[in-house]
Design a protein around this nucleic acid. Structure first.
Lengths: 193, 193
DNA sequence: CGCGACGTTGATTTGCCTCAACGATTGTGG
DNA sequence: CCACAATCGTTGAGGCAAATCAACGTCGCG
């Protein structure tokens, strides 16, 4: 099981001693998903934190009209979960599925709490992780309430260049909060400049 | 100095032993703000985490047109800071000011790190705090990309009922991402139902 | 081959903004 | 205590950004 990339990712933020690493390794499970496979389906309780080794996952919401809205894409070395559901142990209104064949390491909630207790370093790691995610979400809220669709599209290109030619346009549209048709028109408009 | 309300707020999340409480108390400073006074001004580095004892603060962004966009309101028992600036120690693009005369307890970044090291419980407290803030931001992004202005206004009423008759309409408008005029029209429309 | 996923384009509609004007209330200095 | 300004909310006319709806082209794949 390849936990090396996960450990490398963690030690960029906090040092980890050997017991911590082996305790972590003992609690991780490898899981493989094919394209379109659910990792979390709306209505189920989210019970794991998931670390992506390869591939691409999306966390999204389906509104009452059936339209999908992407909250997050997770690629190599990214974490994803419905933290709300994970905490409250209530059914999730969000779903997670694979945009590509994907390999993840996942850890259950109880095991994570175990880790927190045994090794406070993990409290810190997930605090820093969550703070960074929070900062990102804050910037996104700002974008949404203060910019045009074109600006948000350009900001997406800049922030996630590795995703632009990897995921379909319709996913980018659902992330920045416009229709796919309109993203197409934005592109046309940009290319004619 | 009234740190009781802060301690009470913390122990709802994690138990705190006496040394932790006294170490915390030693690092807190009381500060009073009048209405309209800046706690953080755009361009300055955010150096403190702030806990509101009484009053109301707002965290907001001013765009290139001069329009203000509220990211957060913090009332009694709320925390507020520009976490991005606090972490990176770079000038903030956000501002914080007082909508009412306000009393806060604040703690500096270095002191906070001290606390983290001495008492891992604080790592956990701020992890949980940030996770909850993150969940809130995520829901807000969802609202922004999937609902109409009227839905967002109704959601605001439901989520922050204590703010509705406390802060001016223009602030609510800047929070949900529409013009004040349009919020006024939403109200008219709702009352005629 | 035929079908589903994906992207593009155009015509029309609509949600929300812009700009401008106008009361009501509050606060403040003379 | 009054006069005046500033703040706050409302209303209306007109305009624009983005949605909706519909049609069509292309590709990859069972």
């Amino acid at each position: 099981m390849d936990i090396q990339s996960l450990v490398q990712h963690i030690v960029k933020i906090i040092p980890l001693d050997d017991p911590a690493v082996s305790d972590l390794a003992a609690k991780l499970a490898l899981k493989k998903l094919r394209r379109r496979q659910y990792l979390l389906q709306e209505g189920d309780v989210c019970r794991h934190y998931n670390f992506v080794l390869s591939g691409c996952l999306r966390l999204y919401f389906v509104d009452e009209k059936g339209t999908e809205h992407a909250l997050q894409f997770a690629t190599e070395n990214g974490w994803v979960a419905d933290i709300g559901s994970l905490h409250s142990e209530t059914p999730s209104r969000l779903s997670i599925d694979a945009l590509e064949p994907t390999e993840i390491l996942r850890i259950g909630k109880a095991d994570l709490i175990d880790l927190y207790v045994k090794h406070p370093a993990f409290d810190r790691y997930f605090r820093v992780l969550t703070e960074n995610a929070f900062i990102g979400m804050q910037q996104r809220v700002l974008q949404n309430i203060s910019s045009t669709a074109e600006d948000r599209y350009l900001a997406f290109l800049e922030k996630y260049p590795h995703l632009v030619n990897r995921i379909p346009l319709v996913q980018i549209a659902s992330f920045i909060g416009v229709t796919p048709e309109f993203v197409s028109k934005i592109r046309k408009n940009l290319s004619s400049k």
